[in-house]
Amino acid sequence: MVETKVQSILYLNGVTKSFDGFKAINNLSLDIRPGELRAIIGPNGAGKSTMMDIITGKTKPDEGEVKFRDVIDLTKHDEAEIANMGIGRKFQKPTVIESLSVWENLELALAGHRNVFQTLFFKLDKAQIERIEEILLLIGLQERRAEQARNLSHGQKQWLEIGMLIIQDPELLLVDEPAAGMTDYETMETAKLLKSISENHSVIVVEHDMDFIRALDTKVTVLHEGSVLAEGTLDVVSSNPRVIEVYLGR
């Protein structure tokens, strides 16, 4: 899935975005390699969500470059186009389609046809059914496939949403606070799940939970006031005095 030719799966350079004079993102630069699992931490208002919005096309930056696979300028595309290029996003609040079943949620996210007339006459083929089964197994929801998504527990919704991400076959996954509101057990299971996903996808995880970040055991970027404060392993950044001051010390 990852082509070796590509240098950076995602490359942000000098990105700035302000809302009514408030700089949510300030000269932010970020470089994600193909196949990399990157954790991003930062206090509330550090610009994590705005960064996600810019990457996924929901918000346009005032200035700066946003490049996908070295060449594609993401600022020129809308959400649906970016999603179809291979960038999947999981929201902070689990947003699965509540009134559809687990199976239907996965079917909806399944890679492939997206236009009205294709979906009007769509039928699952054998390979697609197998693919859905495979994902159901991965996220551990085989038993609850016919259940309406609204009846799932909070953790299960998160997993379903992660499943919906993977089934789109994205090259890059953006995962916003997956462990929020989860039990300790669920948190650790989620970290395991993300690590296994990162074996063949690039993943960016935004998270507050330090135990979760530690379990991911990967490179960490600390955001503060819209730009990068520190970067490195969790041990390196957590001993950085500036990081301690703005974030960990609280």
């Binding site: 959400e79 649906a80 509540e98 909806l108 997206r114 009205v116």
Partner: peptide, 29 residues
């Protein structure tokens, strides 16, 4: 229409419009 996959996209737009966009559907179409 409502029982086709397109119908499930419509329901998904009703329940979570921006989620549907991020899955890659052109909601406006």
């Amino acid at each position: 229409i409502t029982r086709s996959k397109a119908g499930r996209v419509l329901i998904s737009i009703r329940d979570a419009e921006s989620r549907t966009r991020f899955i890659g559907y052109k909601v406006e179409h």
